[in-house]
Design a protein around this nucleic acid. Structure first.
Ligand SMILES: [Mn+2]
Ligand SMILES: [Mn+2]
Ligand SMILES: [Zn+2]
Ligand SMILES: [Zn+2]
Lengths: 138, 138
DNA sequence: GAATAAATGAGTAGAATTATCAATAATGGA
DNA sequence: TCCATTATTGATAATTCTACTCATTTATTC
């Protein structure tokens, strides 16, 4: 029987994945669009966005973004680390002290001038974890 | 004598900074806008964006964003770290192995389910570093 | 108080991303 | 091979976030 909600294999999706696998440049959606268009001139930009999301939801690629795309601001200008909830998007400070060794580790790269680093953890916050167990109780 | 290019102290900027200092929630520009409006109903959204940028350029606050706002995509779904150039925005993979201890460190937080972490270094890439010394040569 | 120019408010513009929906095409079964 | 189903597409409109414009206001120094 035909499963409901399965993922189809389309020429467009294959092309997008191939383009992404063929570069090391961590491209934007639009860059991928321009590349795919060379082989498939009628492809739609919406298709690119849709597939990039689908692919990353299925763990075939990853999206590098800060949570929900738009900027967040922090009154504390000193480097510190954050926990971001995948469910509700809240961002919380971690008490963990900034790791000086991390900077030194990366300084080994010849020619690179490392000025700082950012570390963030993601997962489920206690609040959302609660809600989830409520759901299972139904 | 009046210096040129100095930063003025305005009611709006003070209010924005006060709002930001008064929360731990890492708000968006719009959230700050709604808050400031309660005390200052005629404040403009443009003023909020302008000041948030000014304040972070002067190191009084920090902006949490992924480089140039829009998403980048990566064909490699496994966790690995990146170097981001502040000048040209290029993102490069680091050979550094993912640090397992980091996850364990954060797992100490009770109630949090840590699923992963992201680490990125920022600074100046060799290419831009070159250009910069060219500039000084003039 | 007057001169200066930084900053504001109101509106417009742009860029990135998402939503809509009729048409298309991938899939598994007959 | 043909069919029914429905995930996916292409084209376009709509949103959303952020930057820009410019006349007016206002903080700052003298
Ligand atoms: Mn913080
Ligand atoms: Mn990468
Ligand atoms: Zn949560
Ligand atoms: Zn660079």
């Amino acid at each position: 029987m035909k499963p409901k909600g399965f993922v189809r294999r389309t020429r467009q999706r294959e092309a997008i994945l191939a383009v992404l696998k063929g570069t090391k440049c961590h491209p934007t959606a639009d860059w991928v669009y321009q590349e795919v268009r060379k082989e498939m001139p009628h492809v739609s930009l919406g298709t690119i966005y849709r597939n990039l999301r689908t692919l990353s939801e299925h763990g075939e690629i990853q999206e590098l973004a800060f949570g929900s795309a738009h900027s967040r601001f922090d009154a504390n200008p000193d480097n510190h680390y954050h926990f971001i909830c995948e469910e509700c998007g809240t961002i919380e400070d971690l008490e963990m002290p900034a790791l000086a060794e991390l900077g030194k580790e990366a300084l080994k790269l010849p020619g690179y001038e490392v000025r700082g680093h950012r570390l963030e953890f993601h997962g489920i916050c206690p609040h959302c974890s609660h809600h989830r167990s409520d759901d299972y109780a139904n």
